[in-house]
């Protein structure tokens, strides 16, 4: 039997169904952390870049990717950590941003380099009512990558995915 070697676009489509363990509304591909997919002989190599250095989901993500590919019949998989260039929220896809919004998380502002590190320079529209009349409550939310905001109009609190 000839070993199955699906093309890398197909593999990317499959990975597009692997949810981020902490924000399951979006996939690891939406998040922009799958940097490369390539065959090296009969091994499928997936380059993944961590979001934050200490993100506890990093190990789970590698395991989830491996499990998903194994279920598709690939048995030689090498998930490699790629540090450089450092991940930026600018890499979250347009589809990913919409999914975050639908899930109730305000997506990060684009062009992170302009405001990264300064929450005061970032604004978030309320994912519930769309109002831009919002305020930051705390720089950290349920995960390191999010801050807590509140809408001054509909009064709902919400998470904002910080630009980095």
């Amino acid at each position: 039997m000839i070993a199955m070697r699906p093309d890398t676009d197909t593999v990317r489509d499959w990975l597009g169904e692997v949810p981020d363990p902490e924000i399951p509304a979006i996939s690891v591909v939406d998040l922009g952390i799958v940097r490369d997919v390539a065959w090296e002989n009969d091994t499928l190599v997936v380059d993944v870049t961590p979001t934050y250095a200490g993100c506890p989901a990093t190990l789970v993500i590698a395991l989830d990717i491996e499990t998903a590919l194994r279920e598709r019949g690939i048995d030689k998989i090498d998930v490699r950590r790629k540090m450089s260039p450092a991940w930026s929220t600018d890499w979250i896809s347009a589809e990913g941003r919409q999914k975050l919004l639908d899930y109730g998380i305000a997506p990060p502002q684009l062009n992170a380099a302009n405001c990264a590190g300064m929450l005061s320079a970032q604004t978030a529209a309320c994912p519930q009512c769309g109002s831009e009349n919002t305020e930051a409550i705390a720089a950290r939310g349920s995960t390191p990558c999010k801050a807590q905001f509140r809408c001054r109009d509909c009064r709902e609190p919400f998470d904002y995915f910080k630009a980095i």
Partner: peptide
């Protein structure tokens, strides 16, 4: 590589 990754986190820390 380490620094270019960490510096973005550290900016939020001091903020």
């Amino acid at each position: 590589d380490l620094a270019q990754k960490s510096v973005k986190e550290v900016r939020y820390h001091i903020d």
